[in-house]
Design a protein around this nucleic acid. Structure first.
Lengths: 116, 116
DNA sequence: GCACGTTATTTGTTTTTGTGAATAACAAGA
DNA sequence: TCTTGTTATTCACAAAAACAAATAACGTGC
């Protein structure tokens, strides 16, 4: 039997105080990788295309190297994909997130103690 | 310091998915303790009284024990103060926050690596 | 009873944020 | 040239959150 309290802490990577990477954005990147399209990715994770596009735009702008490559027109109307740098990025983020979850889970007990 | 990237992660304590405690709320609680008034506290941290009041209301509602005691009317028109439980709460939160900041600082390096 | 200052509550406005729809731009292939 | 499906862009609307102001409720001291 546990108390109904829990601790949440989402990682956010910033550049100059501007948001660069979050869990939601990594989710988007993962879908872009698997679908090859910003439009398809946004639909799958229930995000408006415009927001998905602006996230990609912002990440590319803040990043020292491009995260997503995009092309329009062509064989299938165009598409998008991750750069190797972008793929590396989500790997690192997910590992860090996993470590962080463990940490929160463990140290959070000390806090949640007082609710028993 | 080299690259302009940084990692942020704010602790949020929830009950049944509802927000119970955040850094901002602890800040409010601290000011309530020092001023003895929700109104004065809200002014000092530049938060509207209504928001401060609703935060206090929500925290008290979610907490197993009251966090803030309030009275209206009386000698100085009324006032508010922390319960011992509430005071204990901000102590724990701040310690946890400090530990967490250390952790983020340390493990974040592994992530920020790839921006060099 | 009246003044005082805070809590408590309501109402309307503003600001922010996200969304949906519509459209242009694009480049390959038929 | 025409079709196709995506990226890129704009605009108006919707939903949510924050805010300001006004007002009632309260209890102590005068």
């Amino acid at each position: 039997m546990k108390h109904p309290f829990s601790i949440k802490a989402e990682l956010e990577i910033q550049k100059n105080g501007e948001c660069f990477l979050t869990l939601r954005r990594v989710e988007l990147l993962r879908k872009i990788k698997s679908t090859g399209s910003i439009l398809a990715a946004s639909k799958e994770i229930r995000m408006s295309y415009q927001q998905a596009w602006s996230f990609v735009e912002q990440m590319n702008r803040l990043s020292p190297l491009p995260v997503v490559t995009r092309k329009r027109g062509g064989i299938n109307g165009g598409g998008a994909d991750l750069t190797p740098f972008g793929a590396n990025l989500i790997d690192r983020y997910e590992k860090l997130q996993a470590l962080h979850n463990d940490y929160i889970q463990k140290t959070g007990e000390a806090m949640l103690f007082c609710f028993l």
